[in-house]
Design a protein around this nucleic acid. Structure first.
Lengths: 159, 159
DNA sequence: GAGTGGATACTCGGATAGGATCTGTCCGAGTGTCACCGG
DNA sequence: CCGGTGACACTCGGACAGATCCTATCCGAGTATCCACTC
């Protein structure tokens, strides 16, 4: 029950893209965060497949957020990278063994599955309440100085 | 982000142990649920290490709940099998790269980590609200007939 | 000087190895039970 | 008939392979840019 490490990278990238005014290449994002460029590219591909970011090819290409940062929740990013599958999968072991309950009596999930599903919903609800724009605002207030502004400026500088 | 399959087995075993009046061997629990006996034993060892169940060796040995089912939460079982590690680990990538924020400004977790930790807390809180006794009661009301009574009787029968 | 064509350099995308964790299995250590033997 | 002793059978516990998923990497497909050439 450990979240993939790529989730953290993807979230940071989304926040950074908030401060960008033009497409940002994956290599640039990797350099900024000091992580593997090729592996980060894989995460960004996941975001692209999920429709959270739009990729533009060519010389001045890169990634751009497809919609407003307020309309992208943290849950969207997590599900894009991690997959939409639930954290708990019930294998219906109550229908196995010598004391198996008949399938006709198994219309509703069992008590254990209900409990796990409820916890899963609570987790997702907490992630859905926060948007990428919220994260961006938090970053802005956490530190002194215009961090996001400096970030946008660094993205525009050529090396 | 997928929960280990052994969690489901462990939870079912805890509910079954509620209906038992004497130690139940791992092999018996495996037969009841129709799962691998050796692998289930591994999960029960985790429960034993966590102090949720007490193991008695010898001929009439097996596993017994150490405390009242009301005092064992679902979270206890999940953490026993899955480990107490949080679902999200922050690698502090904000301190890396050319725009790294100095370590002196990183006294509090970053916005992303805070959000993920909050979701983790919500998930754990939902699991903590339900006890094994609650599960047992739910199972009793879900189906017609005294399912737990039949279960206890089956456990006492020798094959 | 303006337009056009092509070469170029840069970007993303999917297919490809390596490592770690989860799943599943095995055999040895420990203990209560039972039968047997002696008093 | 009762107590002691020994062997036994049954249990758990940790050490050992196999499978699956995560991590990391590479090379090919596609496109906007730039430059040279022509009109």
């Amino acid at each position: 029950m450990k979240l993939s490490g790529g989730v953290e990278w993807a979230l940071h990238c989304c926040v950074v893209l908030t401060a960008a005014t033009e497409p940002v290449p994956a290599a640039r994002l990797a350099e900024l965060h000091g992580v593997s460029a090729t592996y980060l590219a894989k995460q960004l591909q996941s975001l692209s497949r999920a429709g959270l970011v739009h990729s533009v090819q060519g010389k001045a290409g890169g990634y751009v957020l497809t919609r407003a940062a307020d309309d992208i929740t943290v849950l969207d990013v997590v599900e894009a990278v991690e997959g939409p599958q639930p954290t708990f999968v019930c294998t219906e072991i109550r229908q196995r063994g010598p004391m198996a309950t008949p399938a006709s009596a198994c219309t509703a999930p069992c008590a254990i599955a209900r409990t796990m599903y409820a916890a899963d919903r609570a987790w997702r609800a907490a992630l859905r309440e926060v948007s990428v724009a919220d994260l961006s605002r938090m970053v802005g207030t956490d530190y002194e100085g215009d961090v996001l502004g400096q970030l946008g400026q660094w993205l525009r500088t050529v090396d």
